[in-house]
């Protein structure tokens, strides 16, 4: 893959990415290329490196070898590259991570104002637009603690969208939610996918993967073991570890 030709529509490209935590080899020679508009679901057992992988894309984790390029910008360790990439990459976390001392509207307007230099009026207009988009505009003046988990996660999605990113990363966005709230978040993600957003989702929601993913990637022990279209991935997984994993996941759902 080292000589892979990056075509025009490639948005993200990882080549031979390596990451260790001390002696623990978290990512082993990861090659991955994501086209504009593509929806990728990353799955695998815990500790397989899937969260680490997407956290490397927006430089929340540093890599020790290989390269990551987002929209032609090489992540070379300079703060300029980090800034450029974080402006284009939105992220949604498992534990929402809303700022507790700000209202929903302030949570959404903060980054456009501080990072893009948008005026308060314009930032709030933007915030309202994306809160409407995730159907939670009626809660704009509330504080995060006054919302349910599902509502908080939708606000977190709106907050990321306010930076108008080219790609959205989702790190197990429904894992911390009560079961009855999973659907409202998944529906929001599905509707985002329908609008053509490029997405990389770490999730075990296999129904979601079937419905929206262009590719499902299975990781284990820091390696990409198998990747395929969902149809093929679920019907005829090739690798033994994939079969075991799917057996366990589907038995629990």
């Amino acid at each position: 893959m080292a000589n892979s030709v990056i075509d025009q529509s490639t948005l993200i490209s990882l080549e031979k990415v390596e990451r260790w935590y001390g002696a623990f080899h978290a990512l082993k020679a990861i090659d991955l290329s994501v086209r504009k508009g593509e929806k990728i679901v990353l799955c695998g057992p815990s500790g397989s490196g899937k969260s680490t992988l997407i956290r490397c894309i927006n430089a929340l984790e540093t890599i020790q070898d290989g390269s990551i390029t987002v929209e032609g910008q090489l992540l070379d360790g300079s703060s300029k590259a980090v800034d450029a990439i974080r402006r284009e990459v939105g992220m949604v976390f498992q534990s929402f991570n809303l700022f507790p001392h700000m209202t929903v509207l302030q949570n959404c307007a903060l980054a456009p104002m501080r990072v893009r230099g948008t005026s308060r009026a314009d930032a709030e207009k933007l915030a309202r637009k994306y809160l409407e988009r995730v159907r939670i505009l009626d809660q704009a003046e509330k504080y995060p603690a006054q919302l349910s988990g599902g509502q908080q996660q939708r606000v977190a999605i709106a907050r990321a969208l306010c930076m108008e990113p080219k790609v959205m990363l989702f790190d197990e966005p429904t894992s911390a939610l009560d079961p009855e709230m999973v659907k409202e978040v998944l529906d929001t993600m599905i509707s985002l996918a329908r609008d053509g957003m490029t997405m990389i989702c770490v999730t075990h929601e296999m129904g979601f993967a079937r419905q929206v993913a262009d590719r499902v990637i299975f990781m284990a022990s820091g390696e990409i073991i198998e990747e395929a279209e969902p149809e093929i991935f679920f019907k005829s997984p090739k690798h033994e570890r994939t079969k075991t994993f799917l057996g366990e996941i589907l038995a629990h759902h």
Binding site: L60, D83, R86, G90, M91, N97, F99, A111, V115
Partner: peptide, 9 residues
């Protein structure tokens, strides 16, 4: 929360 801040740029 700190990471969310960094992720937003």
């Amino acid at each position: 929360q700190v990471e969310a801040g960094y992720a937003l740029g």
